[in-house]
Design a protein around this nucleic acid. Structure first.
Lengths: 339, 339
DNA sequence: TTTAGCACTCCAACACTCTGAGTGCCAATA
DNA sequence: TATTGGCACTCAGAGTGTTGGAGTGCTAAA
């Protein structure tokens, strides 16, 4: 395998490159780190690292730059997670106080994360996955419309307007609301479909039709846990780091504008070590993100993961800091949701 | 005043500059347009325009570029609104079909607008301004929480979770709901504060306290018509046009990320001719947008303007096309909301 | 008022050189 | 065998000249 000192050299290269944004050469390396060997020896190590495709020289007489593979080895084996400093902790504590509802909490979270990391931050709204029904409300809205509100025990509220096509009968709506709630409160979302089957059948034909319409809508709503939502913040950080993105930042901007694409990406990412999942450069199958890295962590409610959050930045990012920031914010959000 | 031919020259300069992105000189001007005079004459006209601060030479021996003032004169007096072509009309028609609720309609609208113009598009959610209450719903959500839903007759639905700090009494909630609805349905939002005054006072002291809490929340909700919402699309178009923004695009990205700032900006913009309002370059008091232009139009429901939509792009944009696109989309949205 | 002509300006592109940081290789060394 | 100093070599980038062309302002004549 690769000898220890060579790995140390890789670590030094990654750290120096992240700090200086310049390809790093053997001489400056021995100056800044105390390896106890000469530049020539370092050069031998670098030749080895290059053979392993862990570093790469932009041109013949230039210093070296880590490859995606090099970054990967770095985060997997060489980097320690940097603990947050006091001011960062304080920022987290302060940012969260006094946010009442889910929208606001997540809104604050995403801004916090982007401030902490100086990257693009994203927070996914809780999925309905393992949640259960807390309450269903039907509200006559206009002459022929009903507003349905679905509240789940993870705090998510979904609403949808249903067009009935006929005048709303308030008594009927009340009855249906009562029946739905009786059947569904406490039921897992995955069980909703089974539990509503009988409801419409037990009604008079003309009402059954309406009831079916509404129930179908409810099922759509439940089923729409795929059609999830992500909020972003700090997009302007991309432009500030545009020299870190070879080519242009617009493919990145395009990619993150497509919610569907983003959701697919983070749903594929499963927590690795430290509870954090990483995609580095070309590990992203996504076209636009081949020069970007994604750091993601799940956050929980009632003991199970309900959604994810993370940051997106250039492959040349400070992985240690970003990983710890993402992890800390995820934990903090979990804690906040617990109340 | 400025003679007619000079104005024609200005128009030609603006058009050529938008098309070519190069400073335009006297010679190429006479080649591409049939002024019937020589380049030397055009040069005299250009000298005049420069004196009036309508055009400007980046350096001594370069062509001319319109100033903000030049663009302003162009849009105010020289440009005709370009009618949409067939495919653009079709795009509008197709894009809108089958969108049921407000969220989806506005979501589609903003994407449509950004596609049509290749700029950053924005759509403001309807303000509560002239709207009136259609329905108020109170739903016990968790042990100590109540979800309040406020539905207004312009289709907007606002929801908020209220933490009561004590166990929810369902009967009390029902009573309060009934009272609120009795007092408020049909009332203009501006009158809500006045109409709820007596409600809490007529209750038993311990309940009055809770009622007050909820009512205060309702008032916040109503009052929060300042705390409005804007959705954006096509941010990546900025990066594609980054050479049009001297310096960097990040101040622009920052500016549009700040909802509050954007809302303030568009609320200041009052419709001028064609029902469209423009801010060109430094006319934007906003720091980050001095190299950008903003095109905004209001859209209506039930005969009165309820919110605005528009695009943001470089000062060197195709004003004719963008103005007509913004106008057309605003009209179409007005029409859609009418149903 | 318009025009042709002319001298002038200046950017952009290109070619060229130079320098310094960095490399690979090799023979000597511990 | 691993390490080292030395050396020749490479190359991007910064700096310098040179040139061409597009564009200008001015002037005198039509």
């Amino acid at each position: 395998m690769i000898p220890d000192r060579s790995l140390e050299v890789l670590r030094a290269i990654v750290q120096d490159y992240i700090a200086s944004k310049e390809p790093v050469g053997s001489k400056s390396l021995v100056e800044r780190h105390s390896f106890g060997v000469s530049a020539a020896t370092i050069r031998n190590d670098m030749a080895l690292l290059e053979e392993e495709d862990l570093i790469h020289a932009p041109h013949t007489s230039a210093g070296r730059v880590p490859t995606d593979k090099g970054y990967r080895l770095f985060v997997d084996r060489l980097s320690e997670v940097k603990p947050l400093n006091a001011s960062e902790r304080l920022a987290i504590e302060n940012f969260m106080v006094g946010s009442a509802d889910l929208d606001e909490t997540l809104g604050r979270t995403v801004r916090l994360l982007s401030q902490l990391t100086n990257q693009v931050a994203m927070v996914q709204y809780p999925t309905l996955g393992k949640a259960s029904v807390r309450h269903i409300e039907l509200i006559p809205a206009a002459d022929t419309r009903v507003l349905m509100v679905l509240i789940t025990d993870n705090g998510r509220i979904q609403q949808h307007v249903i067009e009935l096509g006929t005048a709303v009968d308030e008594a009927f709506i009340s009855e249906l609301r009562a029946k739905l709630n009786a059947a569904l409160i406490g039921a897992a979302l995955t069980d909703v479909a089974g539990k509503v089957k009988g409801i419409a059948a037990a009604m008079k034909p003309d009402l059954a039709k309406l009831a079916n319409l509404i129930i179908q809508n409810l099922l759509d709503q439940v089923d729409a846990n795929r059609q999830e939502k992500i909020i972003l913040a700090g997009t302007s950080n991309l432009a500030k780091r545009k020299e870190d993105f070879p080519g242009s930042i617009s493919p990145v901007l395009e990619a993150i504008e497509e919610q569907v694409v983003l959701l697919k990406l983070i749903s594929e990412m499963q927590a690795e070590q430290h509870g954090v999942s990483l995609r580095i450069g070309r590990e992203n199958t996504l076209e636009g993100l081949t020069n970007a890295s994604v750091v993601v962590s799940g956050y929980e409610n009632q003991g199970s993961e309900i959604a994810k959050l993370g940051v997106i930045g250039p492959t040349r990012m400070d992985y240690s800091s970003n990983i710890s920031a993402v992890r800390a914010v995820a934990r903090y959000l979990t804690k906040t949701l617990g109340n």
